[in-house]
Protein backbone atom coordinates (compact mmCIF):
# COMPACT_ATOMS: atom_id res chain seq x y z
CA UNK A 1 0.00 0.00 0.00
CA UNK A 2 1.18 3.50 -0.81
CA UNK A 3 1.61 5.67 2.24
CA UNK A 4 2.99 8.73 0.49
CA UNK A 5 2.44 9.69 -3.10
CA UNK A 6 4.30 12.49 -4.80
CA UNK A 7 2.58 13.37 -8.06
CA UNK A 8 4.25 15.57 -10.70
CA UNK A 9 5.68 17.92 -8.08
CA UNK A 10 7.71 20.95 -9.17
CA UNK A 11 9.14 23.76 -7.13
CA UNK A 12 10.84 26.85 -8.52
CA UNK A 13 12.91 29.53 -6.84
CA UNK A 14 12.89 32.63 -9.01
CA UNK A 15 13.24 30.69 -12.26
CA UNK A 16 15.48 27.97 -10.85
CA UNK A 17 13.69 24.64 -10.93
CA UNK A 18 14.85 23.01 -7.74
CA UNK A 19 12.61 20.04 -8.43
CA UNK A 20 10.94 19.44 -11.75
CA UNK A 21 7.99 17.14 -12.32
CA UNK A 22 8.97 14.51 -9.79
CA UNK A 23 6.61 11.58 -9.14
CA UNK A 24 7.10 8.55 -6.96
CA UNK A 25 5.50 6.85 -4.03
CA UNK A 26 6.57 5.31 -0.77
CA UNK A 27 5.20 1.98 0.37
CA UNK A 28 3.94 1.49 3.85
CA UNK A 29 6.57 -0.17 6.00
CA UNK A 30 9.45 0.65 3.69
CA UNK A 31 12.83 2.18 4.30
CA UNK A 32 13.05 4.34 1.23
CA UNK A 33 16.23 6.14 0.21
CA UNK A 34 16.49 9.39 -1.73
CA UNK A 35 19.91 10.11 -3.16
CA UNK A 36 21.43 12.51 -5.63
CA UNK A 37 24.38 14.88 -6.01
CA UNK A 38 24.55 18.15 -4.08
CA UNK A 39 21.88 20.62 -5.13
CA UNK A 40 19.77 18.00 -6.86
CA UNK A 41 16.66 19.01 -4.93
CA UNK A 42 16.42 16.36 -2.23
CA UNK A 43 15.92 18.73 0.66
CA UNK A 44 13.54 20.84 -1.40
CA UNK A 45 11.48 17.73 -1.99
CA UNK A 46 11.29 17.11 1.77
CA UNK A 47 10.35 20.72 2.35
CA UNK A 48 7.49 20.40 -0.09
CA UNK A 49 6.28 17.17 1.47
CA UNK A 50 6.43 18.59 5.00
CA UNK A 51 4.60 21.71 3.88
CA UNK A 52 7.34 24.29 4.43
CA UNK A 53 7.39 25.07 0.73
CA UNK A 54 4.25 25.01 -1.35
CA UNK A 55 4.79 23.19 -4.63
CA UNK A 56 4.74 25.38 -7.73
CA UNK A 57 2.72 22.59 -9.31
CA UNK A 58 1.85 19.00 -8.51
CA UNK A 59 0.33 17.25 -5.53
CA UNK A 60 1.37 15.35 -2.45
CA UNK A 61 -0.89 12.64 -1.07
CA UNK A 62 -0.54 11.03 2.32
CA UNK A 63 -2.74 8.09 3.24
CA UNK A 64 -4.88 8.87 0.20
CA UNK A 65 -5.48 12.43 1.29
CA UNK A 66 -3.98 15.49 -0.41
CA UNK A 67 -1.70 17.37 2.00
CA UNK A 68 0.12 19.86 -0.19
CA UNK A 69 -2.24 22.68 0.77
CA UNK A 70 -1.96 22.11 4.52
CA UNK A 71 0.33 24.14 6.80
CA UNK A 72 3.32 22.21 8.20
CA UNK A 73 1.87 21.71 11.66
CA UNK A 74 -1.24 20.06 10.25
CA UNK A 75 0.84 17.81 8.03
CA UNK A 76 2.75 16.78 11.12
CA UNK A 77 -0.45 16.09 13.00
CA UNK A 78 -1.59 13.95 10.07
CA UNK A 79 1.31 11.65 10.89
CA UNK A 80 4.33 12.91 8.99
CA UNK A 81 7.43 13.93 10.92
CA UNK A 82 10.85 15.05 9.77
CA UNK A 83 14.36 16.01 10.77
CA UNK A 84 16.48 18.71 9.20
CA UNK A 85 19.76 18.62 7.32
CA UNK A 86 21.09 21.42 9.50
CA UNK A 87 19.93 20.43 12.95
CA UNK A 88 17.07 22.50 14.23
CA UNK A 89 16.86 21.88 17.94
CA UNK A 90 15.19 24.07 20.50
CA UNK A 91 18.63 25.21 21.51
CA UNK A 92 17.95 26.84 24.83
CA UNK A 93 15.82 24.01 26.14
CA UNK A 94 16.92 20.82 27.80
CA UNK A 95 16.62 17.46 26.10
CA UNK A 96 13.60 16.55 28.20
CA UNK A 97 11.95 19.88 27.43
CA UNK A 98 12.61 19.45 23.71
CA UNK A 99 10.67 16.21 23.79
CA UNK A 100 7.94 17.44 26.12
CA UNK A 101 7.34 20.52 23.96
CA UNK A 102 6.36 18.15 21.19
CA UNK A 103 4.31 15.82 23.36
CA UNK A 104 2.40 18.83 24.72
CA UNK A 105 0.72 19.22 21.36
CA UNK A 106 -1.21 16.02 21.75
CA UNK A 107 -1.50 15.98 25.53
CA UNK A 108 -4.91 17.57 25.60
CA UNK A 109 -4.26 20.47 27.97
CA UNK A 110 -6.37 23.45 27.03
CA UNK A 111 -5.52 27.07 27.70
CA UNK A 112 -8.56 27.32 29.92
CA UNK A 113 -7.07 24.63 32.18
CA UNK A 114 -4.32 27.03 33.21
CA UNK A 115 -6.94 29.37 34.61
CA UNK A 116 -9.45 26.94 36.02
CA UNK A 117 -8.29 23.34 36.19
CA UNK A 118 -4.80 23.33 37.63
CA UNK A 119 -5.08 19.70 38.63
CA UNK A 120 -5.57 18.70 35.05
CA UNK A 121 -2.48 20.65 34.02
CA UNK A 122 -0.38 19.04 36.72
CA UNK A 123 -1.69 15.54 36.11
CA UNK A 124 -1.10 15.72 32.38
CA UNK A 125 2.32 17.23 32.99
CA UNK A 126 3.28 14.11 34.91
CA UNK A 127 2.05 11.87 32.11
CA UNK A 128 3.90 13.93 29.55
CA UNK A 129 7.17 13.74 31.46
CA UNK A 130 6.76 9.99 31.88
CA UNK A 131 6.19 9.52 28.16
CA UNK A 132 9.19 11.68 27.39
CA UNK A 133 11.37 9.69 29.79
CA UNK A 134 10.35 6.45 28.08
CA UNK A 135 11.29 7.87 24.72
CA UNK A 136 14.62 9.12 26.02
CA UNK A 137 15.34 5.72 27.46
CA UNK A 138 14.53 4.09 24.15
CA UNK A 139 17.10 6.31 22.47
CA UNK A 140 19.74 6.08 25.16
CA UNK A 141 19.34 9.75 25.91
CA UNK A 142 18.41 9.40 29.56
CA UNK A 143 21.75 10.55 30.89
CA UNK A 144 21.43 13.79 28.92
CA UNK A 145 17.88 14.59 29.97
CA UNK A 146 18.70 17.79 31.82
CA UNK A 147 21.34 19.14 29.43
CA UNK A 148 20.60 22.15 27.27
CA UNK A 149 20.34 21.04 23.64
CA UNK A 150 23.06 23.28 22.25
CA UNK A 151 25.66 21.93 24.62
CA UNK A 152 25.16 18.29 23.65
CA UNK A 153 27.79 16.45 21.58
CA UNK A 154 26.92 16.50 17.88
CA UNK A 155 26.03 12.83 17.63
CA UNK A 156 23.69 13.10 20.59
CA UNK A 157 22.06 16.17 19.08
CA UNK A 158 21.29 14.20 15.95
CA UNK A 159 19.88 11.29 17.91
CA UNK A 160 17.76 13.65 19.92
CA UNK A 161 16.35 15.26 16.81
CA UNK A 162 15.15 11.86 15.66
CA UNK A 163 13.68 11.08 19.06
CA UNK A 164 11.91 14.43 19.05
CA UNK A 165 10.39 13.75 15.63
CA UNK A 166 9.13 10.41 16.93
CA UNK A 167 7.46 12.18 19.83
CA UNK A 168 4.86 13.38 17.33
CA UNK A 169 3.82 9.73 16.98
CA UNK A 170 4.23 9.69 13.20
CA UNK A 171 3.39 7.08 10.59
CA UNK A 172 6.07 8.35 8.28
CA UNK A 173 9.46 9.76 9.23
CA UNK A 174 11.55 11.84 6.85
CA UNK A 175 15.26 11.94 7.71
CA UNK A 176 17.45 14.49 5.92
CA UNK A 177 21.06 13.26 5.92
CA UNK A 178 20.98 11.68 9.36
CA UNK A 179 24.51 10.28 8.99
CA UNK A 180 26.20 13.52 7.93
CA UNK A 181 28.92 14.45 10.39
CA UNK A 182 28.84 11.13 12.21
CA UNK A 183 31.82 8.79 12.50
CA UNK A 184 31.77 5.10 11.55
CA UNK A 185 30.53 3.70 14.82
CA UNK A 186 27.91 6.38 15.10
CA UNK A 187 26.74 5.64 11.56
CA UNK A 188 26.38 1.95 12.39
CA UNK A 189 24.45 2.92 15.47
CA UNK A 190 22.22 5.07 13.33
CA UNK A 191 21.50 2.20 10.93
CA UNK A 192 20.39 0.22 13.95
CA UNK A 193 18.16 3.01 15.14
CA UNK A 194 16.51 3.36 11.74
CA UNK A 195 15.83 -0.37 11.57
CA UNK A 196 14.48 -0.25 15.10
CA UNK A 197 12.13 2.55 14.12
CA UNK A 198 10.79 0.60 11.19
CA UNK A 199 10.81 -2.92 12.57
CA UNK A 200 9.80 -2.35 16.18
CA UNK A 201 7.82 0.87 16.01
CA UNK A 202 6.29 0.16 12.60
CA UNK A 203 7.08 3.58 11.18
CA UNK A 204 7.83 4.01 7.49
CA UNK A 205 11.11 5.84 6.87
CA UNK A 206 12.28 7.98 3.96
CA UNK A 207 15.86 9.08 4.18
CA UNK A 208 18.12 11.35 2.20
CA UNK A 209 21.70 10.24 2.53
CA UNK A 210 25.09 10.71 0.95
CA UNK A 211 26.63 7.75 2.75
CA UNK A 212 26.15 5.14 0.00
CA UNK A 213 27.24 2.22 2.09
CA UNK A 214 24.54 2.93 4.58
CA UNK A 215 21.84 3.65 2.00
CA UNK A 216 22.60 0.48 0.08
CA UNK A 217 22.56 -1.62 3.20
CA UNK A 218 19.29 -0.51 4.76
CA UNK A 219 17.01 0.81 2.00
CA UNK A 220 14.71 -1.46 0.04
CA UNK A 221 13.96 1.13 -2.61
CA UNK A 222 16.06 4.05 -3.73
CA UNK A 223 15.00 7.11 -5.69
CA UNK A 224 17.73 9.06 -7.45
CA UNK A 225 17.35 12.75 -8.17
CA UNK A 226 19.57 14.75 -10.47
CA UNK A 227 19.23 18.47 -11.15
CA UNK A 228 15.66 18.35 -9.96
CA UNK A 229 14.63 15.42 -12.13
CA UNK A 230 13.88 11.90 -11.07
CA UNK A 231 16.64 9.87 -12.64
CA UNK A 232 15.75 6.33 -11.71
CA UNK A 233 14.08 4.36 -8.99
CA UNK A 234 14.75 0.79 -7.95
CA UNK A 235 16.39 -1.62 -5.59
CA UNK A 236 19.94 -0.89 -4.38
CA UNK A 237 21.35 -3.37 -6.93
CA UNK A 238 19.56 -1.78 -9.86
CA UNK A 239 20.49 1.74 -8.81
CA UNK A 240 24.13 1.03 -8.07
CA UNK A 241 24.65 -0.58 -11.47
CA UNK A 242 22.88 2.13 -13.44
CA UNK A 243 25.10 4.04 -15.88
CA UNK A 244 23.14 7.29 -15.56
CA UNK A 245 23.49 7.26 -11.82
CA UNK A 246 27.21 6.66 -12.03
CA UNK A 247 27.68 9.50 -14.48
CA UNK A 248 25.52 11.85 -12.40
CA UNK A 249 27.76 11.16 -9.46
CA UNK A 250 31.00 11.27 -11.44
CA UNK A 251 33.40 13.34 -9.48
CA UNK A 252 31.10 12.86 -6.53
CA UNK A 253 31.71 10.36 -3.83
CA UNK A 254 31.68 7.21 -5.95
Amino acid sequence: MELLKIAKVSREFGGLKAIDDVSFSVKKGAIHGVIGPNGSGKTTLFNVVSGHYKPTSGEVWFENKPIHKLPPYKICRAGLARTFQNLRLFKQMTVLENICAVLDESSGVRILDYFLFLNRVLRIEKETVLKAEKLLEDFNLSEWWNVQADSLPYGVQKRMEIARALATNPKLLLLDEPAAGLNHTETDELSGIIKHIRDDLGITVVLIEHDMKMVMSICETITVLNEGHLLIEGTPEVVSNDKQVISAYLGGEW
Partner: peptide, 25 residues
Amino acid sequence: KHGIGRSFRAVRDDHIAAQSLGINV
Protein backbone atom coordinates in the same frame (compact mmCIF):
# COMPACT_ATOMS: atom_id res chain seq x y z
CA LYS B 1 6.96 25.55 33.64
CA HIS B 2 4.39 23.62 31.68
CA GLY B 3 3.06 23.16 28.17
CA ILE B 4 2.46 26.76 27.16
CA GLY B 5 5.90 27.84 28.30
CA ARG B 6 7.59 25.03 26.39
CA SER B 7 5.61 25.80 23.26
CA PHE B 8 6.54 29.47 23.58
CA ARG B 9 10.22 28.69 23.93
CA ALA B 10 10.05 26.23 21.05
CA VAL B 11 8.62 28.99 18.87
CA ARG B 12 11.32 31.36 20.08
CA ASP B 13 14.20 28.93 19.55
CA ASP B 14 13.15 27.69 16.12
CA HIS B 15 9.75 28.44 14.67
CA ILE B 16 10.41 26.31 11.60
CA ALA B 17 11.20 23.22 13.61
CA ALA B 18 8.26 23.99 15.89
CA GLN B 19 5.88 23.98 12.94
CA SER B 20 7.25 20.75 11.58
CA LEU B 21 6.66 19.15 14.98
CA GLY B 22 2.98 19.96 15.04
CA ILE B 23 3.12 23.17 17.08
CA ASN B 24 0.64 25.75 15.86
CA VAL B 25 3.08 28.65 15.86
